[in-house]
């Protein structure tokens, strides 16, 4: 009996409330651990304390890496903002070169946060257009990925980047490998003017409305914008090739002088993987017209006529596109014209 009583008491003790007494501190908890310590000096192992501010080049690089790889969106945005200010100095402060910046930052086109994307666009606009040109092909890849992204916001921001590209280097955009056909593909996917979907699903019902994806959330505004940009793109593509003044030295230059452009033999595609029809480059107006005529004319005309009927911003944009088409393709005589 005695032992069981004792046990009972021991058990009950756990649930008893301890009495607080005046003038005495709170009793320590049973699991209390004393963590106080004394030390004569504090040694911080991993931090280097420097009196002067870090080197601006280092700072730039640090921010560049932050912008491209930080996990926090505000940090990314702020790093981008820092880079933008550095780039918009006169003269621009760019220790790594435009190409390196683009390589690092292009993936941000499909960043999940709107603020980051907007800041990115500002940064792009601060870049000198001449230095962007060699990297247009790479930039276009990311833009296309953005144009076909699932999220509508990213798509619309990708359109802005596209606009910047057209501003900066319209000629390279339409003539680089994949720049013509693939970009047109993305545009038509955005607008829902698709020639291949009907054959893919086997039926062409009335649900195949023109505004399948893009028009959905942001409404006609975005569609109008996409059509306007398509018009700009086509304008760039159908721009008549500038007639070069006769240069008696041109022949010899061609043979003996080093080319001034980057990758002058790109059209030979010596080192890349084999290209198919879509990834091919279409360097001159005629070839672009030919491809456009055989692949796109029909579906774009159809979509265009539907868009025109809508009126409003979309209608206006559509008529602009119509104008562009008639200007660009007006003198094209089809296959027989070649």
């Amino acid at each position: 009996m005695g032992s069981s009583n004792r046990k009972k008491r021991e058990k009950a003790k756990d649930f008893k409330k301890t009495k607080l007494k005046v003038g005495k501190g709170k009793p320590q908890a049973s699991n209390f651990t004393d963590t106080s310590f004394k030390s004569k000096a504090i040694v911080v192992n991993q931090q280097s304390l420097q009196a002067d501010a870090p080197d601006p080049v280092e700072q730039f690089k640090h921010n560049l890496s932050l912008a491209s790889s930080s996990r926090s969106d505000t940090q990314r945005k702020e790093a981008l903002a820092y880079l933008t200010t550095q780039l918009s100095h006169q003269p621009p402060n760019n220790p790594v070169g435009t190409s390196a910046i683009l390589t690092k930052l292009l993936p941000l086109i499909t960043d999940a946060y709107t603020s980051v994307r907007q800041q990115l666009l500002k940064l792009f606009r601060a870049l000198p257009p001449a230095e962007v040109r060699p990297d247009v092909e790479k930039a276009l890849m990311y833009v296309r990925a953005g144009l076909t992204h699932l999220s509508a916001d990213i798509r619309s921001d990708a359109l802005n980047v596209m606009e910047w590209l057209l501003d900066a280097a319209s000629e390279e955009v339409v003539s680089c490998p994949g720049g013509w056909m693939k970009t047109l593909n993305s545009f038509s996917a955005m607008l829902g003017w698709n020639y291949s979907i009907g054959t893919a699903t086997g039926s062409q019902g009335w649900t195949m409305a023109s505004k399948a994806t893009l028009g959905a959330t942001k409404g006609g505004f975005l569609q109008a914008r996409a059509i306007t940009l398509l018009a700009r793109f086509l304008q760039a593509g159908f721009k008549p090739d500038a007639t070069v003044a006769y240069n008696p030295q041109a022949y010899w230059d061609n043979i003996y002088r080093l080319p001034r452009r980057s990758n002058p033999f790109a059209y030979l595609n010596l080192f890349g993987p084999a290209r198919d029809e879509e990834g091919e480059m279409y360097p001159d107006r005629e070839s672009r017209q030919r491809v456009f005529h055989s692949k796109w004319n029909k579906s774009i005309t159809k979509g265009l006529s539907e868009a025109k009927q809508e009126g409003g911003a979309v209608g206006r944009a559509a008529s602009l596109l119509d104008q562009t088409l008639s200007d660009g393709m007006g003198n094209f005589r089809g296959e027989s014209g070649l």
């Binding site: 890849m141 990311y142 296309r144 990925a145 144009l147 076909t148 992204h149 699932l150 994949g178 693939k182 593909n185 993305s186 996917a189 955005m190 829902g192 698709n194 291949s196 979907i197 893919a200 195949m208 399948a212 994806t213 990834g279």
Partner: peptide, 15 residues
């Protein structure tokens, strides 16, 4: 349509 968009996205990403 959505699938086709994503197929294009795949194509772009592949590039």
């Amino acid at each position: 349509q959505e699938f086709f968009d994503q197929f294009l996205a795949y194509d772009a990403q592949k590039q």
